[in-house]
Design a protein around this nucleic acid. Structure first.
Lengths: 191, 191
DNA sequence: CCAAAATGCAAGTGTTCACTTGCATTTATT
DNA sequence: AATAAATGCAAGTGAACACTTGCATTTTGG
């Protein structure tokens, strides 16, 4: 990846964050990248391609793979926390806001698979983990798919709502949220 | 609200669902509404106004108020289910997809408060409920804010992810998800 | 039936946008 | 130093878009 292309991608991503995909005009991109507008089209066939190329950079594509959740201790509390923490470490508020911009209908077809990949990886890893824990007899006889869905939704939901509405909605730190969520799901809130 | 304005709003909302706000051109809107383009501007000062007017219609604005969650039985299991079910009844997949379109930067400033209002109402109602349950000695001595945040996130997360990715992500019915989530949070999954 | 209001129709305006072209200049490679 | 590749510059193109105007026609309400 040459420097010029990188500058173009960076500028595009910055502006998508601020004003969305359609709000990112090639003129603006060129200005922010400090290059000439026509250079954009020497590097990329069309505007769309900038985003697609950008999403392939690790910088703009949270590195969530099976290995992200490999540090398992076979202790349900610390492991669930690890799952949630490692997800939130990769899926930053900035990426969430960016991914909203990447949902622009003009590019969604191309970006959707890459966006969906993240929850999917989380879900599979967690489901596998819970099943193993069940087999080991370390947790109750639960529906692993369903519980994994709950943890994913709780993790994604908090991440998304925090990124969208900031402290206007939640009056709660990430660490405290994870701690409380894990405790509830493990120990329950009933008497 | 006269019939013509309603037709314009309906057409606009339909197209936003399909192609987003910027993808909804006034020409398209007029065509789908079966009226002339210039009529749009006789009814609305500018394109933005169509969306704003639309969001004030109950049809396009989930009716989530304190009363939505008023049917409390003071039984933690059925009440939590009620909270989640009533949220999901109002916040349909269609509204979620629409609300993604309503995040277009050109209109987000106006639409954001109306969108944020929904999780906020849920959160307040649930926090109040949990505190009362705690005072009644019907649940453990939990952090009500934190647990309410977990339930909101789990509810919103599932709704949003389902609406976004459909069955490609979750292989799970709404009812089953709610049931499993509530059971986990109440009873825990630990031995 | 009549007047007023609403809508249609057709044409147009000015702007913005993605994308192009031809040529001059800079930068990198050998 | 010579050559080739990358970039700048300036101007432009054609299309699409939000929004307008003037006038004819239809619909509505008293």
């Amino acid at each position: 990846m040459d420097k010029t292309s990188k500058k173009i991608i960076d500028a595009m991503m910055e502006i998508i964050l601020e004003r969305g995909y359609t709000g990112a005009t090639t003129k603006d991109i060129a200005e922010r990248a400090g290059i000439n507008e026509c250079t954009i089209f020497r590097k990329f066939k069309e505007k769309k391609e900038i985003v697609i190329a950008g999403m392939e950079l690790p910088q703009y594509h949270p590195n969530i793979t099976a290995e992200t959740f490999a540090d398992i201790k076979w202790d349900i509390e610390s492991d669930l926390k690890m799952f949630m923490e490692n997800y939130m470490k990769e899926v930053t508020p900035q990426f969430v806001r960016l991914s909203i911009g990447l949902r622009s209908p003009q590019i969604y077809q191309q970006t959707a698979p890459l966006i969906m990949d993240i929850p999917q990886t989380f879900l599979h890893a967690l489901t596998d983990y819970l099943c193993e824990m069940k087999n080991k007899g370390k947790i109750r006889d639960i529906d692993c798919d369903a519980v994994a869905s709950t943890v994913l939704s709780a993790t994604f939901g908090f991440t998304f709502l925090s990124a969208s509405f900031g402290n206007d909605l939640f009056d709660l730190e990430r660490v405290k949220y994870i701690d409380s969520t894990v405790k509830s799901i493990i120990g329950g809130i009933a008497l």
